[in-house]
């Protein structure tokens, strides 16, 4: 019984601490729009190079590769652009070592790089925001 009192006191103190530490905050949307205003991004001009080097190389999202689909052409990318999977994996889940694309080489030894550079990521985000134009 003597052990219960200090433990219950601790619980009350912990409870008093936890109640004010409850918040209901929603984080802002990623601030991409303002950075994209000055960019004219199209698949043919910029994005194809990024995707060829980061996704559609031999062994991954290319014929015979382990990645789903063949991303070496605009038409090959369209299904995953339209259903949102491309944005989900490349942007939303980019920090996930297995699901975020490009994936970490610790998970996929075939992966040529773990992450897009900040500039490449911004380019992709602006391209998606503009409705992924081809040219």
């Amino acid at each position: 019984m003597n052990i219960k009192i200090p433990c219950l006191s601790l619980l009350v103190i912990a409870g008093l601490y936890l109640v004010p530490s409850c918040t209901n905050d929603v984080l802002p949307e990623p601030e991409i729009q303002s950075q994209c205003d000055t960019m004219m991004v199209t698949y043919d001009a910029v994005v194809k190079d990024i995707i060829d080097n980061s996704c559609a190389y031999a062994g991954c999202h290319s014929p015979g590769g382990i990645g789903v689909g063949n991303y070496d052409s605009y038409d090959g990318l369209l299904p995953v652009l339209d259903n949102g999977l491309f944005e989900s994996r490349v942007v939303t889940q980019k920090d996930d070592p297995a699901l975020g694309m490009p994936p970490n080489s610790s998970v996929y030894p075939e992966s040529a790089k773990d992450d897009l550079t900040e500039e490449e990521l911004l380019t992709i985000q602006c391209w998606l925001l503009a409705g992924y134009p081809k040219n």
Binding site: S21, C22, N24, D25, V26, L27, P28, P30
Partner: peptide, 13 residues
């Protein structure tokens, strides 16, 4: 399950 901060479009509870 309560999260104090959630991404835009997500729910705290």
């Amino acid at each position: 399950t309560h999260r104090n901060a959630v991404p835009a479009g997500d729910e705290n509870n």
